[in-house]
């Protein structure tokens, strides 16, 4: 079995970093644009994310998910860190917007990965309020408190919607093991 791209990066193999940038650059850039206020912020965030990827390459485990998922996870962590660290107001959306999105038909789009396709399908099948909360958090970078304020809902309700929604997404993606969340996702 040939070593994964991240194994090659961890070994400092020439060409692997360039391949990584070319292969995952558009994904990272898309995520950064989505969760950054300006293009300049997104550029800085993209540089930070790739630095994290170089540092974390040795931790990639193919049995835990695809390389694309690994990249997306690291990118998310860094982007959320940046939003909180710089106390940046996340890109703004309204509750109406998300309610519309929650109640409308899912948009037809070509997803960037099989996992994203699975997730999009799972999200489209959630209850509108769960979908709304998940999208505000995951697509727009709002914190739970910000979501509660925006939707004028108690924080506990937001947490419940988020928990149930995310657990359903996990189940739909076959990510569940015999963990703590078994039996609390109804």
């Amino acid at each position: 079995m040939s070593p994964s791209l991240f194994n090659r990066i961890a070994r400092g193999e020439p060409g692997a970093m360039r391949q990584c940038i070319d292969e995952f650059g558009p994904l990272v850039w898309g995520l950064a644009r989505r969760l950054s206020r300006t293009a300049a912020d997104a550029e800085d965030a993209t540089q930070d994310i790739f630095t994290d990827l170089w540092r974390s390459a040795s931790r990639y485990d193919a049995s835990q998910g695809s390389e694309k998922m690994f990249v997306a996870m690291i990118a998310r962590r860094r982007l959320i860190d940046r939003l909180r660290k710089f106390n940046t107001e996340p890109p703004t959306v309204s509750d109406d917007t998300l309610m519309d999105a929650a109640q409308g038909e899912p948009a037809e789009s070509v997803e960037v990965s099989a996992e994203a396709e699975q997730a999009a399908r799972a999200v489209s099948q959630l209850r509108p309020e769960q979908r709304q909360v998940l999208e505000l958090s995951l697509l727009h970078g709002l914190s739970q408190s910000e979501i509660a304020g925006r939707l004028k809902l108690p924080l506990g309700t937001v947490k419940t919607f988020m928990r149930r929604g995310l657990i359903k997404v996990r189940q739909a993606m076959n990510l569940d093991g015999d963990g703590l969340s078994q039996g609390v996702g109804a």
């Binding site: 650059g25 558009p26 850039w29 997803e111 990965s113 996990r170």
Partner: peptide, 28 residues
């Protein structure tokens, strides 16, 4: 598991062909 689910949802709706700006690519 939650991070993976969140990352997967976070990837939805991205423009698959949105290219990386060349100047940024050079910096990377």
């Amino acid at each position: 598991r939650f991070e993976m689910a969140a990352a997967a949802v976070g990837m939805t709706g991205l423009h698959p062909a949105q290219p990386l700006p060349e100047t940024l690519r050079q910096r990377l």
